[in-house]
Design a protein around this nucleic acid. Structure first.
Length: 840
RNA sequence: GCCCUCGUGGUGAAAUUGGUAGACACAAAGGACUUAAAAUCCUUGCCCUUUUGGGAGUGCCAGUUCGAGUCUGGCCGAGGGCACCA
């Protein structure tokens, strides 16, 4: 028997188009299976292998079950690394990107994925971004794009603006540089216009993990409250305040304004105020800074009238903890029931009035009381609970025209301007009269210039000598192009629509195709995109719906699966330098040394693979060494796909061994001599096999691929055990074909090869459970006082009387009951029979 | 600080969703085959017992139940999200 030559066989099936095809135009049912497309950074990594293997199992499984499956792949090809690489290697971003795409495409093909490469798209391709510019203009015309002067998160290393979401703990998500505040005029998508819809429609996403929905819900951050106007006693001007706790209005003891609040204009000549504002800006945005920041205030010596307490005045402060971009940039402070206000009041000796009963008579609070209780010290609100008090006070506020109830969202508009070269140009032009208008659609695409100097600081497009000079087509007026490019998250916010008709020249997508394929039936990707990418894609879908009456889709992704990361141990030498796994050597179970000089190596715990820790494993090396099927097999076998998995060499070795055994099994069966036939043995064999089909099918459906794989190990052993039994070769062959079909989604190369050897004609169909060969027996656990004492195999669906007759004859059970009195029996059909007996 | 998730052998994990805990795999120990190695196969896995067998046992403490890894409450630990959001 030949050893399984995976190199030869995998290549053979990768070149066979029908082996990677999952389209079935005759099918009535469509299935759109999509994995998040990769950034072409150079080579694929194990995270990609896991992501795309999971997707491939789903796509192939659905295809085998008769679906017409769309399983495309593309490239999220714009982005900063290309520019950085071009600086270090003197390679144009386009060239660098396209070379990476070539390499990674070759690698993905080596994995044997069932991808429809005819639909490949790349976001840096002008045929793609042309349509993105069209969509941008559509959005602009619908009022979903705006230009605002705002403070932005400025990344001093990337020389670019970052979205809030790209700032992690006050640092740039890619550069890790401390982010600064800078005022700039920027383009925005008005995602906040959809706050309510984005929140509400989460409820329709039954196929999404609750965790992701919750993260989005918190991100959108809806809060119900009300706006209240306070009158400044000196000049009658109003200060509008937002609060979610209007019920505590009688506990108000001050007003606090953001240092950027309109009223600050009156203090711009006040040196003390300017110093205070400087101090606030300096605090920074880092986590530690915010956590430790003292509450700082600046006393204005102005007062407002309390709207419900005659003759009561509240002092106005500017305070560092009030944000301009949430609510109205102004609050009323109620120290007794808000921790920040409490700290502020303590520092500046302001009144602390308890208005919610905390159950103690102590008036000297140690901290703010945030719990529930009856309202006190509050005139007409007294004795109400918090919620009724809110309702009553809002009514009062509205009827007295002091303000109105208001719902606020934490979600802010999406800043999309980037001062970078390698991105989609924003299709807007600036005219001499100061107006900014869209490029006319027949002028699209606004193409990136090829000759560009990336070795200058600042925006390369702005510094380009000629590119930005243009004319407005319809008027012939001179114009300057917008030199900002779009955030790359825009590129990935609609690519799933483009895949439906990737070659459409005139439109972003063909409506008919979108109607057929969308929504994506199964979307698969990393949890790190739980908020950004998924929220933006949802926004885009709703935005397009608003622009196009015939586009009726509200949500792009019907089912979402977020896979875990791939981890590996890390290694450090004696000098604290990280080492690649290929640089170390295992002497025995305890000693690991550096290959080069045999010095001892420190082993770190398994962590997500990252280049900085060098704990990466190159998928291509693994594929060369063990085969794509073995790599696919192992990455699915060890952990459930939503959890992190630890890559181990031993694991992939054993995967390879097992696949070899499956290969051997095929040959053992084809070389097998007939052992005679026993009808009942054959029947038992078929019953068991049906059971395996059921279990494997079930575990695939519920994304428990590790469990499927466990069943394959059992199934293999099951075949081996039955080789000596009185079962005909014909029956063994028939069922081996079933097993190989079951393996097709996991190890397509091996499965194809074996099915060919077995002479299988109809390869692409999922084995069905033979309903005539389902066992009518079932195992029932027999318990005494809740403890299992025996397990008996009986006919299904026996009634209690029948089963008791059988059980009382069993010696194992008799022993426990003896002459003791049976108080009660509990019988759960096909599961357990439990005797409750007196005494112990 | 607020919100969420998860704690099962030496390790990764199963458990038909309240009914045989530890399937399957890795690692380990012992054994078979072999001149030897590789490859392959088998056995073992906490405590008591020579065995048959029995007992304890799913982070800790309590509760509900005939029966709890699964449900409830409290505690401890790990991970994730948000964070001066009024």
């Amino acid at each position: 028997m030949e050893r399984y030559n995976f190199l030869k066989i995998e290549k053979k099936w990768q070149e066979n188009k029908s082996a990677i095809n999952v389209r079935n135009n005759n099918s009535k049912n469509k299935y759109y299976c999509l994995e998040m497309f990769p950034y072409p950074s150079g080579k694929i990594h194990m995270g990609h292998v896991r992501n795309y293997t999971i997707g491939d199992v789903v796509a192939r499984y659905k295809y085998l079950n008769g679906f017409n499956v769309l399983h495309p792949m593309g490239w999220d090809a714009f982005g900063l690394p290309a520019e950085n690489a071009s600086k270090t290697n003197n390679l144009h971003p386009k060239k660098w990107t396209n070379e990476n795409i070539k390499t990674m495409k070759k690698q993905l093909k080596m994995l044997g994925l069932s991808i429809d490469w005819d639909r490949e798209i790349s976001t840096c391709d002008k045929d793609y971004y042309k349509h993105q510019q069209e969509l941008f203009i559509d959005f602009y015309n619908q009022g979903l794009v705006s230009r605002k002067e705002t403070y932005v998160n400025w990344d001093p290393v990337e020389n670019s603006v970052l979205a809030n979401e790209q700032v992690i703990n006050g640092r740039g998500w890619r550069s890790n540089a401390l982010v600064e505040r800078k005022k700039l005029s920027q383009w925005f998508f008005n995602i906040s216009k959809f706050s309510n819809e984005l929140l509400k429609d989460l409820e329709t996403l039954d196929g999404w993990p609750d965790k992701v929905k919750l993260m989005q819900k918190n991100w959108i951050g809806k809060s119900l409250g009300c706006e209240i106007n306070f009158e400044i006693d000196k000049n009658g001007k109003k200060i509008c305040v937002f609060t979610t706790r209007p019920d505590t209005i009688f506990g108000a003891s001050f007003i606090a304004l953001s240092p950027d609040h309109d009223l600050s204009k009156n203090f711009l000549n006040d040196k003390k105020f300017l110093a205070f504002k400087d101090e606030c800006n300096k605090t920074g945005t880092t986590e530690e800074a915010l956590a430790n920041a003292d509450k700082l205030g600046f006393e204005t010596h102005l007062f407002v009238k309390h709207p419900f307490i005659k003759n009561k005045k509240l002092p106005i402060y500017f305070a560092n903890f009030v944000l301009m971009d949430y609510g109205t940039g102004a609050i009323f402070g109620c120290p007794a029931h808000d921790q920040r206000d409490f700290e502020f009041a303590k520092k500046y000796n302001l009144e602390i009035i308890k208005v919610v009963n905390d159950g103690s008579n102590d008036n000297d609070l140690k901290e703010a009381f945030l719990g529930a209780g009856k309202i006190i010290n509050s005139d007409f609100l007294n004795n109400l609970d918090i919620n009724s008090a809110k309702k009553k006070i809002i009514n009062e506020v509205e009827s007295k025209k002091l303000g109105k109830s208001k719902t606020l969202f934490r979600l802010k508009d999406w800043g999309i301007s980037r001062q970078r070269y390698w991105g989609c140009p924003i299709p807007m032009i600036h005219l001499d009269d100061g107006s900014i208008v869209p490029v006319e659609k027949d002028e699209l695409p606004v193409q990136l210039p090829e000759n560009v100097d990336l070795n200058i600081t600042g925006n390369p497009l702005e510094k380009h000598p000629t590119w930005k000079n243009t004319t407005q087509k319809s008027t012939g007026k001179a114009a300057i192009r917008e030199t900002d490019t779009l955030d790359t998250f825009v590129d990935s916010s609609w690519y799933f629509l483009r895949f439906c008709s990737p070659n459409n020249k005139s439109e972003p997508f063909d409506l008919k195709e979108v109607k057929y394929w969308m929504p994506v039936d199964q979307y698969i990707g990393g949890i790190e995109h739980a908020i950004l990418h998924l929220l933006y894609s949802r926004f885009f879908t709703k935005g397009i719906k608003k622009c196009n009456k015939q586009f009726t889709l509200s949500e792009p992704f019907k089912n979402l699966f977020t896979q875990g990361m791939v981890c590996h141990e890390s290694y450090k030498d004696g000098n604290g330098n990280w080492l690649y796994p290929s640089e170390i050597e295992k002497i025995d179970n305890k000693t690991i040394v550096k290959k080069s000089d045999k010095t001892k190596v420190l082993v770190g715990p398994p962590e997500s693979m990252s280049k900085s820790k060098k704990n990466t494993i190159d998928p291509e090396v693994m594929i060369d060494q063990f085969g794509a099927d073995a790599v696919r097999w192992f990455i699915l076998s060890d952990s459930p796909p939503e959890k992190d998995v630890q890559w181990t060499d031993a694991g992939v070795v054993s995967a390879n061994k097992f696949l070899q055994k499956v290969w051997n099994l095929n040959h053992l069966i084809s070389a097998r001599k007939e052992k005679g036939v026993d009808e009942s043995t054959e029947k038992k064999f078929e019953l068991e096999l049906n059971n395996f089909i059921f279990q494997i099918d079930n575990s695939i459906k519920s994304f428990k691929f590790n469990v499927s794989i466990a069943h394959f190990y059992e199934l293999h052993k099951f075949f081996k055990d039955n080789l000596e039994m009185q079962i005909s070769n014909k029956l063994l062959n028939l069922n081996l074909i079933k097993m190989m079909k079951l393996m097709m989604p996991f190890t397509p190369h091996l499965a194809h090869e074996c099915l060919e050897l077995l002479g299988c004609k109809k390869v692409y169909e999922w084995p069905e459970i033979d309903k005539n060969k389902i066992s009518d027996k079932i195992k029932v656990a027999i318990q005494v006082n809740g403890k299992t004492r025996d397990i008996i195999t009986v006919k299904k669906n026996l009634i209690e009387k029948e089963i008791r007759k059988i059980v009382l004859d069993q010696p194992k059970v008799k022993k426990y009951i003896e002459d003791k009195k049976i108080i009660k029996t509990i019988y759960v059909k096909n599961k357990i029979l439990n005797y409750i007996i007196a005494g112990k």
